[in-house]
């Protein structure tokens, strides 16, 4: 078959110009991706991925929350902790508002006055400021301060 060589053009051809288009496309896609991420961030979204509500947030959506179970964060008010047989009760503040927490179950080892805690539970009614908690979680802050050497030890052995 001597003729076939004539019919097929076997000379190398230049590669199609895919490179250029590819680069513009890459830039375009990256820009769109960046915009998408910015859109997400600028809206301060994903509220319901929050682990807890602050007291301010809970109070402003009081009617919607009703007696639903959720997690509430606040700072334990000094001199209000009352260790009960079932657990502990105390006043919790956040912003300028306060909530009375009646917690069942033993509080964690670090539980004490003046620290932020997260309590899981529900309000007793649509209008009351009493919160029945089934669990207390201590939310420790990112500050680490040396215990004062002259401070006394607490009865349970930890240095306060």
């Amino acid at each position: 078959m001597p003729d076939t060589e004539d019919t097929f053009d076997l000379t190398p051809v230049a590669a199609p110009p895919t490179k250029r288009r590819g680069r513009w496309r890459t830039i375009g896609v990256l820009v769109v991706l960046a915009l998408a991420v910015l859109a997400l961030l600028s809206q301060g979204l994903l509220h319901s991925l929050n682990y807890f509500e602050t007291i301010d947030q809970a109070m402003s959506s009081r009617a919607k929350l009703g007696t639903d179970t959720f997690r509430l964060e606040g700072v334990v008010r000094p001199h209000t902790i009352d260790r009960t047989s079932r657990g502990a009760s105390f006043w919790m503040t956040g912003g300028d508002k306060k909530v009375f927490v009646d917690a069942h179950g033993s509080p964690p080892q670090l539980f004490q006055a003046d620290i932020p805690v997260v309590v899981e539970g529900h309000f007793t009614s649509e209008t009351s400021d009493t919160f029945i908690a089934t669990q207390i979680l201590v939310k420790h802050t990112a500050s680490y301060i040396a215990a004062h050497p002259k401070r006394v030890k607490a009865p349970n052995g930890t240095v306060r």
Partner: peptide, 17 residues
């Protein structure tokens, strides 16, 4: 809506690339 759209756009973008 916005979040799912962003996720969709992100995966489409990565796939195209």
């Amino acid at each position: 809506w916005l979040i799912s759209l962003v996720a969709l756009v992100a995966y489409l973008g990565i796939g195209i690339l």
